[in-house]
Design a binder for these strands. Structure first.
Lengths: 253, 253
DNA sequence: CGATGTCTTGAAGCAGTTCAACCAGGGTGG
DNA sequence: CCACCCTGGTTGAACTGCTTCAAGACATCG
């Protein structure tokens, strides 16, 4: 099932051997998220230590990183792209319970088995870390523990925010909330207007919002007609007035 | 607004002064949760240190411990009772995003301002701890940090489980899920049959499930008619077959 | 160019809401 | 002690927002 976070050996042996002697590992030097995520909490020394247990990978959208009920063998840093975390019921119903963007960390310390499925929503790039190696490092680097603790709390806040969306918002507000979420996680280019590509299919959006694909589509069309958003090719979104979108989403009230 | 987690000084000065010289603080000796929650991670010495910054309190149901948007000045351990965590929108809609039972810890490390409201669902008893004191202790007691980290992750798991309930289950399944949740958090007396009192009003249950009070009532009545549950005085529940309830709830699939 | 997958649109159905009345228990005061 | 109210819960009937089912549009790719 799982293609990435399950196996340990990687393809970059040579690079990593070099890295081991250097102050900062070679792979990490050009890393986009060297100072973010959990790596920001580590010294060059710790990093080159840990580096012997990491593997960089590119993964196509749709591939599972980790599967509900499966043993967790690795953690991972997202370097690029979006990962969706989903929960499934036996009859096929499913709910996306979280979206992870770069440079976030994926994994669940203190657990052997995954309670959810992690799947690449877009094509992604990750830096996988062997679980025992990081667990071990956590003992000796309290700063690392703090970062992970902090991220867990941020994810908890996000999950609870979304519970309000799922439980109490209308379809219109839900869709607007989703667009708002993606908008605020994309790099703002230019002043005011935001332009980004949706990382999720309509089906995924539905699974994230607890709606059907049709309802999502209808609400998007409606927001389009009202000029709250603009969409081309069903994935490329432009937002002129983020504040207005937030208003429709019922955010920040 | 907040009546408890905001102020620092308490009524048990004398007791606590005594506690300071003893190995294990006097207040803690008879404490029901001494070995659970976060206190279980502490030595007697640490405990008597921390003890100078704690206050035991009884609080009536309905009282707010902490209010959305307010500064966090204290943490608390729940010794008895149930606390609900809610999020409100400006138009009055609200969603319960978590229930906390004894001996859980309430609070949000690494944040100054609360993103949610904590309110006593039942009459409760808590042991409030000054935030700076515990924050400080966290630096020197990594074990404490781990416990808090662990609890945050458990809460995250619970939140995500509930997202599936909110987003993808029917009213019937939702109500059954709620009853199942409460059932599994109450002490099982006797073999098989469970008997407990609902800690939440119908309104609260609705706010927890993203339903109206009427729908909750109807579904409960239906489950009653089908002998999945028994209810007396609208609050005292008896469950003969927990497995059957789990089945109706769509849990564990 | 047809084939396939993704998205949109329409029409009908239904689960859950809304509005309104009613019921039960528990206090309060005459 | 009964009449009164008040709060929390139940039940009914009409409505509506979202789903379901079904068909069509659009884009991509062999």
């Amino acid at each position: 099932m799982t293609i990435c976070l399950a196996e340990a050996s990687g393809a970059m042996e040579a690079l990593r051997r070099d890295a081991y002697v250097a102050d900062m590992p070679l792979v990490c030097r050009s890393c986009a998220v060297r100072d973010d995520g959990i790596c920001g909490a580590m010294t060059d020394g710790q990093l080159s230590d840990l580096c012997r247990h990491t593997t960089r990978r590119k993964i196509d959208h749709g591939s599972e990183l980790l599967s509900q009920g499966e043993r967790i063998l690795s953690y991972a840093n997202i370097l690029k792209g979006v990962v969706k975390l989903t929960k499934r019921m036996s009859d096929g119903r499913q709910q996306i319970v979280g979206l992870q963007f770069a440079p976030n960390f994926i994994g669940r310390p203190f657990a052997d088995e995954s309670a959810l499925t992690a799947e690449a929503a877009t094509d992604i790039e990750i830096c996988a870390v062997s679980k025992p190696a990081l667990d071990n490092m956590m003992i000796h680097a309290p700063d690392l523990g703090h970062r992970l603790h902090r991220q867990a709390l941020v994810e908890l806040d996000e999950a609870r925010d979304w519970m309000l969306t799922l439980g109490r918002k209308t379809a219109r507000e839900k869709v607007a909330s989703f667009l708002h979420l993606i908008a605020t996680h994309s790099t703002r280019d230019g002043r005011g207007t935001l332009r980004f590509e949706l990382p999720l299919s309509r089906q995924d959006i539905g699974d994230f919002l607890g709606l059907t694909i049709e309802t999502v589509s209808r609400q998007i069309t409606k927001l389009k007609r009202e000029n709250v958003i603009r969409i081309e090719n069903s994935r490329n979104v432009t937002i002129h007035d983020l504040h207005r979108l937030a208003d429709v989403a019922g955010v920040d009230c």
